[in-house]
Each structure stands twice: as structure tokens, then as C-alpha cells.
Computed example of a mutant assay.
Amino acid sequence: MGNKKTSKSELTLQFHAKEMLSDYVTAVTWSPDGKTLAVCSAAGEVMLGKVGAINELSLQPLQTPTGKSIDCLSFSSGGQFLAAGGQDGKVQIWRADSGELIANLDNQRVWVDKLAWSPNSNQLAFSIGRCVQVWNADDDVVEVTLNFDSSSVLDLAWHPVVKYLAVSGYQGVKVWNGEDWDEDPHVLSVPSATGAIAWSPQGEYLACGNMDNTLIVNEWGSSQPWVMQGFPGKVRELAWSDKTNSLGAPLLAASSSQGISVWERDADESVGWEGWALEVHENVVNAIAFQPTTFLLASAAADGQVCLWYEAEQLLQILEGADGGFSCLAWHPEGSFLAAGGSGGELLVWARSMRGKGFSRMR
């Protein structure tokens, strides 16, 4: 896998800082430049954090507890805006540098649990029931409402390169062309419902985690998807590596119940994708993510463990600090920090070990 392996000592993490929110941490994310950490909770808090020297993590509230959960957070691609959505049906957008609230889109009685900024423009897509709306920050206008039709929207994902927006739910995925929203969407059908979806970093593959315990990988432009079966439950979380193997393909990790499987594109077309299992967690895996530029995989679970998997194969390290379980995690864009949220309101940050090349230095 890959060309040059990073040594294990360079990849271990050490405790950096811990803060507490007042309830279950629902999401955590880093700004694209890595200078700011955003975190939100089931109490409705939205906080911005700066990571300083060891044991330094200063949090500033954008929103104090409201009693209604905030469930999703996303920085715009340039890092200028932070959007949050949740239980009260509002989508709020702040200027990330000043903390000024610049928009408050109210969709009464509809829980907003999915939102994402386009990687190429200041367009924000968010779910409202059976629809997805796209708000344009440059014009301060909702430019389109896309009707998924067959069910509530379960996930959404922008293509990383071209202006496509994938939306999943009952009976599969619809992919709209953002150059012409009126064009009929491209439909990827599944016999059940598709929950999690994720484009590979270059956009050549779209992975779909399904309610019928299958994982489907579509190669964009091909009519024959690969179907992986035998999962213990629905496929809940997906993560692609941005590093590629000798074939130029990224790795795909998928979690189902307390298990994780990793999939690698095989040179043999008849094999397609070859998978292996990572089994240590004793409760549901709530989040998985590859460290940027490596095959190091982090997994956070309700058993109170964050596991680091060397080359996405071998258990390297177990991180703890949320006794009631971990709910979410996010790597710093340079891979130098890992942040994770806990069900008791814990926010933990670990840093690249000093035993390696220094946690701030990246190849």
C-alpha cells in the first residue's frame, strides 16, 4: 500500500488539552487553514476554539445553550463562514473571524441534521425534510430547493471537483448538476435506503452505506457498481484516505455496528475491492477518519475509546478520556492534531507525538 510508509513513532499522539461543553458533543470540525476548531452540542452550544501550547485550548461561544440540539457544523471552503443546523430548524451562518451572525435561515418544525459547503464556491446545502436547499452566501439567497421526493434526506455530499451535489435516502442516491439545477438528477438506485454517502477525494468514486447491510462503490461514469455485503448492520460511517495505493486509488473505511472494514481497489478487475476487518471496539463506532496524507485511520466509539490504526490495518494506539463514549472526531488539515467529542460534553485534543518529527511539521 502506498510508496513510503510513515514510521509508527511519528504517528502516535499525545494528550494536548481538554475542555467541557454542557452536553453531548454532536460535531467537531477544523477550519481549512487549521487555525480554528468549531464544536457544538446537544444543548445548542456552538463554540470556536484555538489550540495553543500544550494544555491550551481556549473556547469562545458563538451561541450559548438554547436547550435545542445543534447537530451539524461546516466551514466554507475558504474558511470565511461557519454554518450550523439543528433541532430548531434554523441554519445559522457566522463570519468565522469575527463571530458575527450574518444569516439565520428559519425552517420551522423541520430538524436540520445535514449541511455542507461546496468545496468550490460559497454555496451551502442543507437538508429540510424531503428537500435540500442551497443557499448562496455571495448573494444571501436560497438559489434552489431540490426535492428528494421518496423520503427524508439522510445525507448529502458535494463532489470535490465538479459542481455535483449527491443526496441520499430511500431507494438510493440522486446526483444534481449544480451548473443546471433544473436538469433531472442522475439516480443511483438501491433496493433499500442509503444513509451515509462520501465522494473519494478526487471524485472518481461515490461510496454509499446502505440500510440493508451493504456498501456500494460507484465508479463515476460506470454503470456497474461494486456491492460489498456481510456487514453486521447498516453501514453508518464512511471515510476515504487522500493518500493512494500503487494503483492510484484511495482506501475506503466503513463502520457498521462495532466493526470497521477497510477496502482497497485490487489490480484484478474480477476482485474489484478487497476488504479486511478491524475489530477492537466493544460498542458502536460513531466516527472514522483518515489522517491527511497518510493511511492512519482513527475510529471513535461509544465504548470510550479512540483507536488509531497503523496503515489502516494494525492497532497502533488507544486514546481515552470520555468515559461515557466518544461521539465524533476530526483531524487537523495538516494531521498534526486530532479532536474528538464525548457524550458527556468532553472535547479532547491530541497532538502528534514529540517522539516523531515534531507534531507541527508535516511532509
Score class of each variant (00 low, 15 high):
Tyr205Gln: 10
Ser41Val: 03
Glu320Asp: 13
Cys131Lys: 08
Arg95Gln: 13
Asn213Pro: 04
Ala27Ile: 00
Glu334Thr: 14
Lys234Gln: 12
Ser151His: 10
Ile93Leu: 01
Asp138Ala: 15
Ser241Met: 03
Gly345Val: 05
Asn286Glu: 14
Ile216Val: 15
Thr244Trp: 13
Trp117Gln: 05
Cys40Tyr: 01
Ser77Arg: 09
Leu319Ser: 04
Trp220Cys: 12
Gln305Cys: 08
Gly341Trp: 09
Asp180Phe: 00
Ala207Leu: 09
Pro250Asp: 06
Ile54Asp: 05
Gly89Ala: 00
Trp30Pro: 04
Pro250Leu: 06
Glu56Ile: 10
Ala207Thr: 14
Asn218Trp: 15
Trp276Gln: 07
Ser7Glu: 11
Leu105Asn: 06
Leu124Glu: 01
Pro333Ser: 05
Gln14Pro: 00
Lys8Leu: 09
Ala43Met: 10
Asp212Pro: 07
Thr26Lys: 14
Gly230Asp: 04
Ala339Tyr: 11
Gln92Ile: 01
Ala301Met: 09
Asp97Gln: 11
Asp139Ser: 15
Ala198Arg: 15
Trp176Pro: 00
Leu188Thr: 01
Asn122Phe: 00
Ser77His: 15
Ile54Gly: 02
Cys40Phe: 00
Gly248Pro: 10
Tyr310Met: 01
Gly34Val: 05
Gly272Tyr: 15
Asn55Ala: 11
Gln317Pro: 04
Asn55Lys: 15
Arg363His: 13
Gly341Gln: 09
Lys90Pro: 01
Leu73Gln: 10
Lys18Ser: 10
Cys72Leu: 07
Ile70Thr: 15
Leu13Pro: 06
Arg361Pro: 02
Met20Cys: 08
Phe75Arg: 02
Asp88Leu: 03
Gly195Phe: 09
Val132Ser: 08
Cys208Ala: 13
Ile288Cys: 00
Asn107His: 04
Phe126Asp: 00
Gln258Thr: 12
Leu316Thr: 05
Ala277Asn: 11
Asp139Gln: 14
Lys5Met: 08
Glu219Asp: 12
Thr29Trp: 01
Trp273Gln: 13
Trp273Ala: 14
Glu237Ala: 04
Phe337Gln: 01
Gly259Met: 10
Thr214Asn: 10
Glu269Pro: 15
Phe231Asn: 12
Ala125Leu: 01
Asp33Phe: 06
Val280His: 07
Tyr164Cys: 07
His159Val: 13
Ile128Cys: 02
Leu278Val: 13
Leu62Gly: 10
Val262Asp: 10
Leu59Asn: 05
Ser118Val: 07
Ser223Gln: 12
Leu319Phe: 07
Ser121Ile: 08
Ser168Val: 08
Leu62Ile: 09
Pro292Lys: 03
Ile197Leu: 03
Ala277Arg: 14
Leu73Phe: 08
Ser343Asn: 13
Lys8Glu: 15
Ala17Met: 06
Ser343Arg: 13
Ser77Leu: 02
Asn104Tyr: 02
Ser270Gly: 10
Asp140Tyr: 03
Asn136Val: 00
Pro32Asp: 05
Lys90Gln: 07
Asn55Glu: 12
Arg265Met: 10
Pro225Val: 09
Arg355His: 04
Val271Thr: 15
Ser7Lys: 13
Ala207Asn: 09
Cys208Leu: 12
Gln108Trp: 01
Asn104Met: 06
Asn3Asp: 12
Gln202Leu: 02
Ser192Leu: 04
Thr36Cys: 10
Ser121Met: 05
Asp71Met: 14
Val144Gln: 02
Cys40Gly: 07
Lys357Ser: 14
Ser22Gly: 11
Ser261Asn: 13
Ser336Lys: 03
Thr66Asp: 11
Leu115Glu: 03
Ala157Leu: 05
Asn55Cys: 07
Gly325Lys: 11
Glu45Cys: 07
Ser270Gln: 15
Thr145Met: 12
